[in-house]
Computed example of a mutant assay.
Amino acid sequence: METLEDAELCFPQINTSCKKQTRPQSESMFIYIFMSFVSLLTVILNLLVIVSISHFRQLHTPTNLLLLSLAVSDFLVGLFVIPFQILYTEPCWVLGDLMCVLGNIIPYITVCASVINMVLISVDRYVAICDPLRYSIRISQKRVRICVLLCWTICVFYSFMILYDNLKQPGRYNSCYGQCVINVVGVTDIVLGFILPVSTIVILYLRVFVVAVSQARAMRSHITAVKLQSSVTVTVKKSELKAARTLGVVVSVFIVCYCPYFCVSFSSYNLNIGSASEVLMSFVVFCNSCLNPVIYAFFYSWFRKTSKLIVTLEIFRPNSCAACVI
Score class of each variant (00 low, 15 high):
38 V>I: 13
38 V>D: 01
41 L>Q: 07
41 L>S: 08
42 T>W: 00
44 I>H: 02
46 N>E: 04
46 N>C: 01
47 L>Y: 09
51 V>C: 09
52 S>W: 03
54 S>L: 11
54 S>D: 10
54 S>K: 12
54 S>T: 14
55 H>R: 07
57 R>V: 14
58 Q>G: 15
59 L>D: 03
60 H>A: 14
60 H>G: 11
64 N>D: 04
64 N>S: 05
64 N>T: 07
67 L>W: 02
69 S>R: 04
71 A>Y: 00
74 D>R: 06
74 D>Q: 07
75 F>N: 00
76 L>P: 00
77 V>E: 04
79 L>M: 11
79 L>Y: 02
80 F>M: 13
82 I>F: 05
85 Q>Y: 11
88 Y>G: 05
91 P>K: 15
93 W>S: 08
93 W>N: 08
93 W>Y: 15
93 W>E: 04
94 V>G: 03
97 D>W: 08
99 M>G: 01
99 M>S: 11
100 C>T: 07
100 C>S: 11
101 V>M: 06
104 N>T: 10
106 I>A: 08
106 I>L: 13
108 Y>W: 10
110 T>D: 05
112 C>W: 01
114 S>D: 10
115 V>S: 12
115 V>P: 02
116 I>E: 01
118 M>A: 09
118 M>V: 06
119 V>Y: 03
120 L>P: 01
124 D>W: 00
125 R>I: 03
126 Y>N: 06
126 Y>Q: 02
127 V>G: 06
131 D>L: 13
135 Y>M: 04
136 S>H: 12
137 I>M: 11
138 R>C: 03
138 R>D: 10
138 R>T: 14
139 I>N: 01
140 S>W: 08
142 K>M: 09
142 K>G: 05
144 V>Y: 02
145 R>C: 12
146 I>R: 15
147 C>M: 14
148 V>H: 05
148 V>I: 15
